[in-house]
Amino acid sequence: MRRIEIRTTHDDPALVARSIAPDNTPEMETRTVDERVVTTITRDSTGGLRTTADDYVVNLAVADEVAQLSDRQTTPNHE
């Protein structure tokens, strides 16, 4: 078995974790620790691990961008 743990920092880690969790496979676990989203991925092969990690990082980037846009829409503009 191959395993990787990916830790990323976000302004709203709980929102990002909730956003990406539906895309997780049974071999993935996403949780929040302090200001971080922590995801553990386990696969039988290195190639499978690499492919899953790559897909996860793309999903994570989209979830983070959406969370940031959502925050901008709900935060009053005081300019």
Rank of each mutant, 00 (worst) to 15 (best):
R50W: 06
T74A: 06
R18T: 10
T32N: 04
P26Q: 06
P13N: 10
Q73D: 05
A63T: 01
D11Q: 13
S45I: 00
T30W: 04
E79W: 13
E65H: 15
V57T: 13
R2Y: 14
P22H: 06
T9A: 06
R7A: 11
L15K: 13
T74G: 02
V58L: 13
R3I: 08
I41T: 03
A63K: 10
S19Y: 02
V62S: 02
D12K: 07
D23Q: 14
T25K: 15
T30L: 00
E5N: 07
V33F: 12
D12V: 06
T8D: 03
N24K: 14
A53W: 00
Y56L: 11
D54I: 03
A63N: 02
R3E: 12
V58N: 04
N24T: 10
T74Q: 12
A53L: 03
H10Y: 15
P13K: 05
R36S: 02
A67K: 04
E35T: 07
Y56C: 00
E79N: 04
T40G: 00
R36D: 09
Q73V: 00
V38G: 06
R18E: 14
D44R: 15
G47R: 15
T25P: 00
V57Y: 05
A61I: 11
A17L: 03
D44E: 13
N24F: 08
R50M: 09
A61L: 08
V33M: 07
D71L: 02
V58D: 04
A67N: 09
T52I: 02
